[in-house]
Computed example of a mutant assay.
Amino acid sequence: MTARPDIAALARRLHEGQFDKAGKPYVGHIERVVANLLNRWPDAGADEIDAAWLHDAIEDCGVTEQSLRALGVSGETCRIVAAVTRPAGSDYLDWIGTLARSGDRAVIRVKLADNEDNRAPERVAAWEDGPQRLATRYEPARRLLEAGLAACEGA
């Protein structure tokens, strides 16, 4: 068995030089998503945690699921990262609904951790359309994902 790569270092390297809409290093978002995942689900496994670190890598860094595998990222982590990457041209809430109905607990939990940071007041305030985006995108997504998580956990 080969050693797992240092996923946090990989994520930091991939997002190096990227900034969020408030002008802060984008890696801060990545770190908060990991913290959100661990705070809410201390039982998160290594693949979920690694996927939280890499959740925006395919969408924002020009890597592919295959190139992440070539870097030593586990197949399960890559699967989760690919699943939480919105397909180009897809409607956001339609895609979230598909994730929520998937019954894939790891995918839903990583996406909820991401959604939590996207709904944070300081992030919303940095976006020109923040209140609208929160009301029409991130809050409806949270409700869909929470319902999906409850369904797959049998609640």
Rank of each mutant, 00 (worst) to 15 (best):
I7G: 09
I7W: 09
A8C: 06
A8Q: 14
A9P: 01
A9E: 13
L10A: 06
H15Y: 08
G17E: 05
Q18L: 15
K21F: 10
K21S: 11
A22H: 00
Y26H: 15
V27S: 08
I30W: 11
E31Y: 01
V33Q: 09
V33E: 13
V34N: 02
V34Q: 09
V34D: 04
V34E: 13
N36R: 08
L37W: 04
L37S: 02
L38W: 05
N39W: 00
P42I: 06
D43L: 04
D43K: 10
D43T: 11
D43H: 07
D47A: 13
E48I: 01
E48A: 12
I49M: 06
D50W: 10
A51Q: 08
A52H: 05
W53P: 05
H55L: 06
H55A: 04
D56K: 00
D56L: 03
I58Y: 14
E59M: 14
D60F: 15
D60V: 07
G62F: 01
G62E: 05
Q66Y: 00
L68P: 03
R69M: 12
L71S: 12
L71E: 15
G72A: 08
V73A: 10
V73W: 12
C78S: 07
R79N: 05
R79S: 03
A82W: 05
A83W: 08
A83Q: 05
T85H: 06
T85V: 03
T85D: 10
R86P: 01
R86N: 03
P87N: 01
P87Q: 01
A88Q: 13
G89A: 05
S90E: 12
S90V: 00
D91S: 10
D91K: 09
D91T: 09
Y92P: 00
Y92T: 13
L93E: 09
D94A: 14
I96S: 11
G97A: 06
G97S: 10
T98K: 15
T98H: 14
A100C: 10
R101K: 15
S102I: 12
S102M: 09
G103E: 11
R105V: 04
R105I: 01
V107N: 02
V107R: 00
V107Y: 07
I108A: 01
